[in-house]
């Protein structure tokens, strides 16, 4: 805590300013304001609705990635894109566009994800391969399995699943509302349950966690399985949302899953996590690209601006947490 802060500032303001998730939401708000100023207010609500719809998928995989990263240095799940593709392709093909198969398809997507997680942790624990290499190499295996299984065919989702994934209530995507509730639940799990607190403890100091009676291996195992399972669920709904499973559908979520975690205020070094920041970061990432597209800037300028703005937000947010 910084002793030099002005005494006049009310405690509640200071408390809010210290929240690491604040900067992601602030960034999202500023980018949104810039966009609607440019369009003179047109489409202000629809942009938010679209940001929620697409942000949903980044948040689902972001939650899993956040738990993994919180386990401490070196922990990251690079198999998320392959898991999404694998689970999406297998569940869509088995459902074969029949509405009656939707629940079974969902269980299959979960099963695909969970087995990738078990496999990942098997590589990490039994073969003692570092997580980065283990999850990367398993992603090659499962991506290849998806290619061999799907043969590049875009298999359509059952109509009811497609309708659910794109449905809206009062302009807000239902899937986004469900995911907001799910994120709230996962925040409670992180802060209020033995499992969640154990993840944070392992991330802060695995030795200390071990001596205080936490089964470090078990916590890590559960976390990798959780991340892969969420990736499987995300692949299932994304296939429903975008009209089928395609082989490159997970590609952009490798970077996105890590970016929403970091921009959202979770410590890359582990041991400190933040669920609410994920949504702010996901909205920010989508709105940023939308703003630059709306301005009609060239592709080169857009990419440079995206990089610069992300670095700026991380610097501002990271600088604050370093002071406290």
């Amino acid at each position: 805590m910084n002793a030099a802060r002005p005494a006049a500032r009310p405690a509640i303001v200071t408390r809010v300013l210290e929240q690491p998730w604040l900067w992601a939401y602030l960034g999202a708000l500023l980018v949104w304001l810039a966009t609607i100023t440019f369009t003179q207010g047109q489409g202000a609500g629809e942009v938010i609705s679209a940001a929620l719809a697409f942000g949903t998928f980044s948040v689902i995989v972001g939650i899993g990635q956040m738990y993994v990263i919180t386990l401490g240095p070196g922990n990251v799940d690079l198999s998320i894109p392959a898991t999404m593709t694998f689970a999406g392709a297998v569940s869509m093909k088995i459902m074969g566009t029949q509405d009656a198969m939707i629940p079974l398809g969902f269980l299959i997507a979960i099963g695909c994800g969970a087995s990738v997680g078990v496999f990942n942790y098997g590589l990490i624990r039994l073969l003692r391969i570092p997580p980065i290499i283990a999850t990367l190499s398993s992603s090659f295996l499962f991506q290849s399995a998806a290619i061999a299984y799907g043969r590049g065919i875009k298999i359509k989702p059952p109509p009811i699943l497609a309708d659910f994934a794109t449905a809206r209530i009062a302009g807000l995507p239902i899937l986004a509302l469900v995911t907001i509730l799910f994120a709230a639940l996962m925040a409670v799990v992180l802060h209020r349950t033995v499992y969640g607190r154990s993840v944070v403890a392992v991330g802060q100091n695995p030795r200390a966690a071990h001596f205080s009676g936490i089964s470090v291996d078990f916590i890590r195992f559960v976390t990798y399985v959780l991340s892969a399972t969420l990736a499987g669920i995300c692949g299932y709904f994304l296939s429903g949302f975008s009209g089928g499973a395609s082989l490159n559908m997970g590609a952009e979520f490798l970077l996105a899953s890590i970016a929403v975690v970091v921009i959202g205020g979770t410590s890359v070094a582990g041991g400190y996590a933040n669920v609410s920041g994920l949504w702010g970061a996901a909205l920010f990432m989508f709105l940023l690209v939308t703003m630059l597209n709306t301005f009609g800037l060239g592709a080169g300028v857009r990419l440079v601006m995206t990089g610069v703005i992300i670095i700026a937000v991380i610097t501002v947010a990271g600088g604050k947490s370093a002071n406290s």
């Binding site: 047109q42 629809e46 942009v47 609705s49 679209a50 940001a51 697409f54 690209v289 939308t290 597209n293």
Partner: peptide
């Protein structure tokens, strides 16, 4: 994704 983003404007 890109079209959904720019469409409202």
């Amino acid at each position: 994704k890109a079209v959904a983003g720019i469409l409202p404007s």
